[in-house]
Design a protein around this nucleic acid. Structure first.
Lengths: 139, 139
DNA sequence: GTGCTTGCAAATCGTTTGCAATAGC
DNA sequence: GCTATTGCAAACGATTTGCAAGCAC
């Protein structure tokens, strides 16, 4: 399995659980919370514990294998896509969408960092998504 | 008192508690959490309740009188400065600093919003602040 | 005196911790 | 066998809720 190697490149020892969680992240680009991942995977892996999901996601984030998003004030969410991109949270339906990151956002910010060492860039946008806008217009 | 009028411009009925909390936000630009505000104000207002602090901050955020920041995964923080600017969280000392927002970040993003209606822009940066960097270099 | 605001106590819920059982080299 | 990983149950802590008392116009 390919995910095995991929975890190793991040210096993460692969285990059944870790591979399953990474696989979930990469095949479900919905920016799930730890609880969502647990609930879904628990169906096919009944012995999986919530603790392991939390431990694993934290490990992934620390090793750069996943992004930890704090866009939603209720839950921390996770993203298996670590390439630079922005996120949009719909305040109506709660979905998180990917958006392209403003092209030079990273470079511009390094100039404006005021002497701080920046290691993470998070661009969050909030509002009403196009699907919810549609529903509102119909009303 | 000036804050009285200011709250009214946001359609917020001023009360002793609300004025005190807004005053704290405007005189302490440290991006405090609800709990921090409560602990500080409680000294001079012993009857103030934590519930009121939470209610008030939520009200402020809904009326655009303050920003609700989710940069820190532990606590929601609040900012009385509602002008467009970015935030930097130091992973070592936990302090949140203000940074100028990349000049055209807002405009660029409206072009790239993919049909969603954007009402809030949050630019978060994380890393090590210049003061903590200094300490590390001395070691 | 009606409606909004406050404040207390309890509940909620996402997340973390302690620790024993287990798996992998 | 030793070390890292897992999983359960309990703890934790930030935030919310229910509701009664207080305040303002």
């Amino acid at each position: 399995m390919d995910l095995y190697k991929q975890l190793l490149t991040y210096n993460i020892k692969p285990s059944i659980q870790r591979v399953a969680i990474m696989n979930y992240l990469l095949t479900h680009r919905t920016h799930p919370s730890a609880d969502e991942i647990f609930l879904k995977l628990n169906k096919s892996m009944p012995t999986l514990s919530k603790t392991t999901v939390y431990n694993t996601l934290k490990l992934f984030a620390e090793h750069g294998a996943a992004l930890m998003l704090t866009i939603d004030e209720k839950n921390v969410c996770f993203d298996g896509d670590t390439s630079p991109h922005a996120h949009f949270l719909c305040k109506k339906c709660g979905k998180i969408y990917d958006l392209p990151m403003a092209s030079s956002a990273k470079e511009v910010m390094e100039m404006k960092s005021d002497g701080h060492l920046i290691t993470e860039v998070h661009n969050y946008y909030k509002g009403i998504c196009k699907n919810c806008l549609k529903d509102i217009n119909i009303d």
